[in-house]
Design a protein around this nucleic acid. Sequence first.
DNA 1: AAGCTAAAGTTCGATGCTAAAGAGTACACA
DNA 2: TGTGTACTCTTTAGCATCGAACTTTAGCTT
Lengths: 178, 178
Amino acid sequence: MPDRHPTLDEQIAIYQREYRDLDPQVEKVVNAVSRLDRRMNVAYGRQLATLGLSNPEWEVLKELVMAGSPYQLWPGTIAKRLGLTPAAMTHRIDRMLGQSLVTRERDPDNRVRVIIGLTDTGREKWLEVMRKASVFEEDLLQDLTTDERAHLGDMLTRLLRRVEDAQPDAGGRLTDLD
Amino acid sequence: MPDRHPTLDEQIAIYQREYRDLDPQVEKVVNAVSRLDRRMNVAYGRQLATLGLSNPEWEVLKELVMAGSPYQLWPGTIAKRLGLTPAAMTHRIDRMLGQSLVTRERDPDNRVRVIIGLTDTGREKWLEVMRKASVFEEDLLQDLTTDERAHLGDMLTRLLRRVEDAQPDAGGRLTDLD
DNA sequence: AAGCTAAAGTTCGATGCTAAAGAGTACACA
DNA sequence: TGTGTACTCTTTAGCATCGAACTTTAGCTT
């Protein structure tokens, strides 16, 4: 028994034997996305480690940069976007404060709220990671032509729109919001 | 501040302001994959919960089915494929034994080793999940024609080959194995 | 204005994960 | 045959996360 998974095509062939009505085309796309994400995260994790950053910290950094200037978000917002509980955010922020990656202050407009801000250190860390990551990402896509990259990006965006603009109903079906 | 992320295109526009040399085409593909995987996992998680299954348990079930008949793997193999430590596998298997999803027995060829086997109950659970999941997956891909689905699957497979057949070197570069 | 309700974030107890140490087994080589 | 070495799984301690209860504040209702 080798430590590696069967190839994607082997996996789907076996799945089809177990479940006759499975659509191999759909299954291929879905499982490729899942496998790709896992591999990408392993690669990112390795590079983050060399910069003294953990994956959880990197996630928070990304959210703050993604928010754009002035790089501020409420903890609850970050938590929801990352799919975490507020409790987990409290502890993550605690740790990141110690490394001066972020700041935490009370919201002057509502004293129950708190504002998490990105420090210059945090922004520079983000940039370092991105510079390293872009080398890996370019390698990952090296077999695709510019046209293919554009087409791939376009199709993935369409899938994403389908799932980000909709909420699954009680039966798990994706239904349009409006 | 809304709880939702900026759209993918907004995210990339902001990233470009922060990091001029970023390739937006590459970034779009990579971030779309990452976002898609997160959304898919949320959707799967919801459906698993209705079947009394957790995500960790589902991962193990998938590995055993993917191994094909006779649905047996060593704990260490499953751990490596899932990116977990052996210790985590020990505990996962403990929990799954309680639900009769898997069996654990000593390997007759090497008494240090252990063989994890899939029970009929486990196989039926896998099938239930797949039936539910395929509804969601079909919804996810509904905007793509058959040709597009094939092309998308093909391109993703090529990315996957690049990252599954290679090991990043010390600098994080992807290099061919042979 | 006073009290009610909703919302944000922190604290607390329980669970699952990791890293490292430990116990048991197989194999190579003298 | 005996010993060393490598390997596999389990155990243990420490840490991150979750679910739930709690504190504080804002805004609505009467």
